[in-house]
Design a protein around this nucleic acid. Structure first.
Lengths: 341, 341
DNA sequence: AAAATTATGTTAATCGATTAAGCCCTCGTC
DNA sequence: GACGAGGGCTTAATCGATTAACATAATTTT
């Protein structure tokens, strides 16, 4: 009853033609007469042959129409993060237009080899924790595009994080301010902690370190200061981690006048904690965020932050990959001012 | 310099053994001596052979370790919906444990054939708009699990939507109430509209229709009524669509006493509109939601809704698929009471 | 010590396509 | 009417593995 799956050969013998002809009917219409082609296609439809086996095609043709979205964090995290969700939206929308499929990958350098042979390219979102992973991808002769970090020899998509951080910080930092920084992924630790003199993440070109540079420039230009024990490391842009840092920073003595947060998630959490403690904003405390997620645009009081177009970033990433573009793309950002004066 | 990619054969000739032995070194350790195996594996590491080509393996072995998550809606929508995000989290977490990869699919019945040949199974989230799609999947002899709908002959994962709707509605509906319903995907229309006598979606086993049944039972038991022009169709659980319906329902004359919403997103939008119109809740208007997303658990005033464990649903779906379980799973739900009295 | 097992490899068919190369036939052209 | 060009289709090599069946050597059994 349930006959085994049909192959190209089955169809060929059944129709009394060669396998090449069937294959051509599906792939190269110019290689056979239109009449025969119609005949074959019609016959396939009636006998229930849905076209050449895709697994075999992948092997033979060497491409699969599958694009891997390689995530620096776990899929669980990424799907729940507003910024990353928007990015995925952008990517998937663009891929769909070109009939490409989306594989979500969040493994390490060990298991990347599981997919490397059959995906057509990699969109790498955020610097992989495992530098080896980037290497593995780079060694394949397949297109790679790096988003929110730089990968030697490959196109990348970034905003000018240093400049954006500088500009947003400049809005909030006044002379003589004591400034604290709630940083994202500054060091290699799985939990929230102060950085002190811990050596920063090896990857000195990470967006977090660029933002740190921007912050420092703004702080020193303003004639303010940030003491070394007032920089926090937060391992993921997650409310729970952020809350812990927020509490610590607000309970510091003396309390900082300004807190620069490397993501809106962090800033929102800080804002909420501050309000709960009846701290007057912006009189007693000034907060800046980063990213410009929807929730951050409608806080009360309004938050000062940097808006970046995450969905467009996803679209660009996909386009860049599909077109095999080679140039680095610098995306614009936009300052959104809250009450900092 | 950049030599072509290594194959099993290359390695075999280089080491002076047969391809079968190399293959066995990777796949069947019992087929060769431990010493030789170590030797081979070591050699592979030094010459940079990362194991058998996965594309070839897929063809030959007939499986890929890729699981398709087939979405009823677009990927764009699903990633931004809290309930669906949680579901994806559950699925991906479980797949990762078993070293399976996740392919997000949101196409139609035409393009499903693009992936059918190489994925190992389908988790179908929500009834596909295109019934043909379900058929195509069903015809493959691959595992399928249906989530939030029923698929003839395949395991499914559901809550008792009819009962849940009944229970939540019972909390809000009083005798002589005029009740309105903001329904989700009731008919085949891409925009928000009243249902009137439009024939409902063909799929009479959809969760929306079950919920409708539950609502109706509660309404009639309470001795209240819902007039036929007070049922809205909302095409997607999206704020924009929901807002439109919310405004219409609140501007109706007379205004309903109770509005039963088929998702929390809808209920939240309605709540916000109502508050903006200075409608007193629950004195002048009672609202119920559905799903129990995070945002719905901390509204003010608190919302009455049905909580379902979406992440667990995802985990179960993945487990059920990987274990090739055959039985339908009925998940528990939980009523969360707000102020309805 | 012969026979029976077991351990260790090898050979060759196979998974289901794609595609370069070749064959045959029909046309058009001079 | 001979020659060249194309159209239309077939042959057969190939993509890179897996694995049943077989061969040979080493070990055990009796």
């Amino acid at each position: 009853m349930t006959k085994t799956k049909l192959t190209l050969r089955d169809v060929a013998t059944k129709l009394g033609v060669s396998t090449a002809t069937i294959s051509n009917a599906f792939n190269r219409p110019d290689q056979l007469s239109a009449a025969k082609r119609e005949e074959i296609l019609a016959a396939c439809k009636t006998i229930g042959y849905h076209g050449p086996n895709r697994a075999a095609q992948i092997l033979r043709k060497g491409h699969s129409n599958i694009i891997a979205l390689v995530l620096a964090d776990s899929i669980q995290y990424v799907v729940s993060d507003p910024l990353a969700s928007k990015f995925i939206q952008g990517v998937s929308g663009e891929l769909q237009k070109h009939n490409k499929h989306l594989l979500l990958y969040a493994g390490d350098s060990e298991t990347i080899m599981d997919i490397v042979d059959f995906v057509d390219g990699f969109i790498c979102y955020g610097a992989p924790r495992n530098a080896a992973l980037a290497q593995e991808m780079a060694q394949q002769s397949k297109p790679v595009v790096a988003v929110d970090f730089d990968l030697q020899g490959f196109p990348s998509i970034n905003i000018d994080n240093e400049e954006a951080a500088y500009q947003v910080a400049r809005q909030a930092v006044n002379a003589d301010d004591h400034v604290a920084i709630l940083g994202l992924r500054l060091i290699d630790s799985p939990s929230t902690c102060r950085v002190y003199d811990t050596p920063l993440f090896e990857c000195d070109r990470s967006i977090s370190h660029r933002r740190l540079e921007g912050y420092r420039r703004a702080v020193s230009e303003a004639g303010a200061s940030v003491s070394s024990d007032w920089i926090w490391h937060i391992p993921e842009s997650d409310s729970t981690y952020a809350r812990q840092a927020a509490r610590e920073v607000l309970n510091s003595h003396p309390r900082p006048d300004t807190v620069l947060c490397m993501s809106d998630i962090i800033a929102l959490e800080l804002l909420q904690c501050a309000l709960a403690m009846d701290i007057k904003i912006p009189q007693e405390l000034r907060i800046t965020g980063f990213d410009g997620i929807d929730e951050a645009l409608r806080t009360r009081p309004p938050l000062t932050t940097v808006c970046q177009a995450s969905m467009e970033k996803g679209q660009l990433a996909a386009q860049s990959l599909l077109n095999r573009e080679q140039n680095a793309i610098k995306m614009p950002f936009e300052l959104k001012l809250g009450e900092t004066s």
